[in-house]
């Protein structure tokens, strides 16, 4: 930006704004090529592994009970999709994770905001939260089962508890990182209390909130597996557990791959959200 001030003062149309798209067209195409090559390079290793796995399975050196061939996993996957069995398990798992995450995550966000905004509330709440945070979630699981049984309540509450903390901690941190000079601006412009929260604190804390969101979602998945492995009659975790006891190793693999795929998908969604919400950031270019 050489000197746009003088340009704008003269009323001349700012050249760099109009010039940008032309310049970036060129770079996008180049970047696309680069991305394609990167994708190819990245998928090289998995392809080699899959290929040799398939080959080795065919020779009969390894036990197909422990290492089923990729082709038989795909075949099993296809059958489960067609029969609708897979979808039934996936549906309940996603529902559990979603409900738990929504409950815990929104509470984490609200508490994080409140604790960040009001130091009195921080003194009241934060020590207790930090204490509970240090307790490993797995240690609390038996207690939750005793209290709420093996039903949906204990699972959803466990997921909620897990996804509460990352959003709480990061939102709190984000609020405390808000430039205090901007609060003076809000006072001079006579922002209402609600607007101070919605138009100053929340957007300023957004980078941290989104980081908390990503961490919360991954914790939600993690706790979901734990909860479903401990006792359930449906869900991907149950599917894995059940398949293990009947030595259906293909299904175990399918369950694991499914977890990975859904986890990656949600993470990508948050990244898209990040790109849209944080495009104002100067440092955000990764």
């Amino acid at each position: 930006m050489s000197n746009p001030t003088t340009e704008a003062l003269k009323g001349v149309a700012p050249s760099q704004v109009t010039a940008k798209p032309i310049a970036s067209n060129h770079t996008t195409r180049k970047k696309g090529d680069f991305k394609g090559r990167k994708f190819l390079l990245g998928s090289l290793l998995p392809l080699i592994i899959l290929g040799s796995w398939q080959y080795v399975s065919g020779t009969g050196i390894v036990d197909p009970m422990l290492f089923p061939a990729p082709s038989s996993i795909i075949k099993e996957f296809y059958e489960m999709v067609v029969s609708g069995e897979l979808f039934r398990h996936l549906e309940i798992s996603v529902l559990r994770a979603l409900l738990g995450f929504l409950l815990g995550g929104s509470l984490g966000l609200l508490f994080g905001l409140a604790v960040g905004m009001f130091s009195k509330f921080e003194e009241l709440v934060d020590p207790t939260v930090q204490m509970i945070r240090t307790v490993p979630l797995l240690a609390i699981t038996p207690l939750f089962i005793l209290w709420f049984g093996f039903g949906e309540t204990s699972k959803i509450l466990l997921i909620a508890l897990g996804s509460f903390f990352p959003l709480y901690v990061n939102t709190f941190l984000g609020v405390r990182n808000v430039d205090s000079k901007l609060f003076d601006v809000a006072r001079v412009l006579e922002f209402k209390r609600v607007n101070q929260m919605l138009r100053l604190v929340l957007p300023a804390a957004m980078p941290n909130v989104l980081l908390g969101l990503r961490l919360s979602i991954s914790i939600a998945w993690l706790v979901l597996v734990v909860a479903e492995l401990m006792g359930a009659d449906r869900g991907i975790g149950y599917l894995i557990q059940d398949a293990r006891s009947f030595m259906r190793t293909e299904v175990v693999f399918i369950g694991i791959i499914l977890f990975a795929a859904v986890g990656k998908l949600t993470d990508s969604l948050v990244r898209v959200l990040e790109r849209r919400l944080l495009k104002w950031r100067d440092s955000y270019r990764g």
């Binding site: 000079k181 003076d184 001079v188």
Partner: peptide, 19 residues
Amino acid sequence: KPSQEKGFIFQEHRLFPWL
């Protein structure tokens, strides 16, 4: 108290970076 009747221009621009 501060109010919109008294417009204040700070040393730094203090714009909201996300707007």
